[in-house]
Measured scan of single mutants.
Amino acid sequence: QLRFETNGEEQAKKVLEEAKKHNLEAHVTIENGKWVVHVK
């Protein structure tokens, strides 16, 4: 499982879109005010 700390909602959405293009499972959590994308 990969973990990407992003700078906010915009970047998190871009990472999610990329993951979906590659048929990867991804979800976002907010940790300590940071948007974190988890990709399987």
Rank of each mutant, 00 (worst) to 15 (best):
K20G: 07
L24A: 05
H38A: 04
V28W: 03
L24Y: 10
N7S: 14
G33H: 04
E10A: 12
T6L: 14
E18H: 14
K14Y: 13
F4H: 04
Q1D: 14
N23E: 06
V39M: 06
K13W: 12
L24I: 07
V36N: 01
E9G: 04
V39R: 00
K20M: 12
A12S: 05
N23S: 09
W35R: 00
Q1E: 14
Q11M: 11
H38V: 14
V15L: 15
V28I: 15
V37G: 00
K13P: 00
V37D: 02
N32A: 06
V37I: 07
E25Y: 10
K40M: 15
H27V: 13
E18N: 12
K40S: 15
V15M: 14
I30V: 13
E31S: 05
E10V: 08
K14S: 09
E31M: 06
K13E: 09
V37Y: 00
E17R: 10
A26F: 05
V37N: 01
K14F: 11
G8L: 10
K40E: 13
R3E: 05
A19M: 13
K21L: 12
K21V: 07
Q11D: 14
V39T: 03
K13S: 10
K13G: 07
L16Q: 06
G33P: 00
R3L: 08
V36I: 14
E9K: 08
L16T: 04
A19D: 00
I30W: 11
K40P: 08
W35K: 01
F4Q: 03
V39G: 00
E18Q: 13
N23K: 11
K21R: 12
L16I: 13
K14V: 12
E5G: 01
E5A: 02
K21Y: 08
A19R: 01
K14G: 07
W35N: 02
W35D: 02
N7A: 14
E25W: 08
A12P: 00
F4I: 15
A12T: 04
K21I: 07
Q11C: 12
N32Q: 08
K21S: 10
H27E: 10
V37H: 00
Q1I: 15
K40T: 15
I30R: 08
V28M: 12
K34P: 00
Q1T: 15
K34V: 14
I30T: 06
N7M: 12
N7L: 11
A26D: 00
E5K: 01
K34Q: 10
K34N: 06
V39E: 01
T6D: 04
E10N: 08
L2T: 11
E18K: 10
Q11L: 07
K21M: 10
E25D: 12
V37P: 01
E10I: 07
V36Q: 02
V39S: 00
K14M: 12
A26R: 00
Q11I: 08
K13Y: 14
G8Y: 13
K40G: 14
E9I: 11
A19I: 12
K13A: 12
T29E: 10
L2E: 06
T29L: 08
E9L: 11
F4E: 03
A26S: 05
R3S: 08
E9T: 04
F4P: 02
W35A: 01
E17F: 08
H38W: 15
K20Y: 12
K34R: 10
E10R: 05
V39D: 03
V15S: 02
R3Y: 07
E31T: 05
K13L: 15
L16P: 00
E31A: 05
L24K: 07
H27Q: 10
H22I: 05
V39P: 00
N7Y: 12
K20R: 14
K40V: 14
L24H: 06
K34L: 12
L24M: 12
A19V: 10
A12G: 02
K21N: 09
V37W: 00
E9F: 13
E9P: 15
A12M: 06
T29K: 07
H22P: 00
E18F: 15
K20S: 10
F4T: 04
K40H: 15
G33L: 02
H22G: 05
I30H: 11
K14W: 14
V39N: 00
L16N: 01
E17D: 12
T6I: 09
A19G: 02
W35T: 03
L2K: 07
N32K: 06
N32I: 00
K14L: 13
G8R: 10
T6V: 15
V28S: 04
K34A: 08
I30L: 11
E18L: 15
E18S: 12
E18Y: 15
K20L: 14
A26W: 05
R3M: 08
K40N: 14
K40Y: 15
E18P: 00
E5H: 05
N23F: 11
V28G: 02
K20N: 09
Q1N: 14
G33T: 02
K20P: 01
E31Q: 06
E5I: 09
E25S: 11
I30C: 07
R3D: 05
G8F: 13
K34F: 09
I30A: 04
E10P: 04
E10H: 08
T29P: 00
L24N: 03
A26Q: 01
A12H: 01
A26P: 02
E5D: 05
F4L: 09
E17S: 10
E31P: 00
Q1K: 10
L24T: 03
E17Y: 09
G33R: 00
K20Q: 12
V15I: 15
N32G: 12
Q1M: 15
H22T: 04
N7R: 10
T29D: 04
Q11G: 10
Q1A: 14
N7W: 12
E25V: 12
N23I: 02
N23H: 13
L2H: 11
H27P: 00
T6M: 13
Q11H: 13
N23C: 07
N7D: 15
W35H: 05
E5M: 03
H38C: 07
A19S: 04
G33K: 02
G8P: 02
K40L: 14
K14H: 12
E25G: 04
V36E: 02
V15W: 14
T6G: 04
H27I: 12
R3G: 04
G33I: 00
E31F: 04
V36D: 00
G33F: 01
T6F: 15
N7H: 11
R3F: 06
G33D: 07
V28H: 02
G8S: 15
N32D: 13
A12W: 03
E5C: 09
V15R: 04
K21D: 05
A12F: 03
K34Y: 09
E18M: 15
H38P: 02
H38I: 15
F4N: 02
V28Q: 03
W35Q: 01
K34H: 10
Q1F: 15
G8Q: 11
N23M: 08
A26H: 03
L24Q: 07
T6R: 03
K20D: 05
K34T: 10
H27G: 03
F4R: 00
G33E: 05
A19L: 15
Q1W: 15
G33Y: 01
T29C: 10
T29N: 06
H27N: 08
I30K: 09
V39I: 15
N32E: 09
I30G: 02
L2Y: 13
A19W: 08
N32H: 08
K20F: 12
V15F: 14
L24R: 07
A26G: 06
R3K: 09
E25K: 09
H38G: 01
E25M: 11
Q11W: 11
E5P: 06
E17M: 12
E17T: 07
L2G: 10
V28T: 05
H38N: 10
E25L: 11
E18W: 15
H27T: 13
R3N: 05
T29Q: 08
V36S: 01
E25T: 11
N32M: 05
V36M: 03
E31R: 04
E18V: 13
H27C: 10
G8M: 11
W35V: 04
T6E: 05
E9V: 08
K40F: 15
K14Q: 13
E10F: 07
K21W: 07
K34E: 04
T29G: 03
V28F: 06
Q11A: 14
E5W: 04
E31Y: 03
W35M: 03
F4S: 03
N32F: 06
K13N: 14
L2P: 02
V28D: 01
E17N: 11
L24F: 11
L16D: 01
E10S: 09
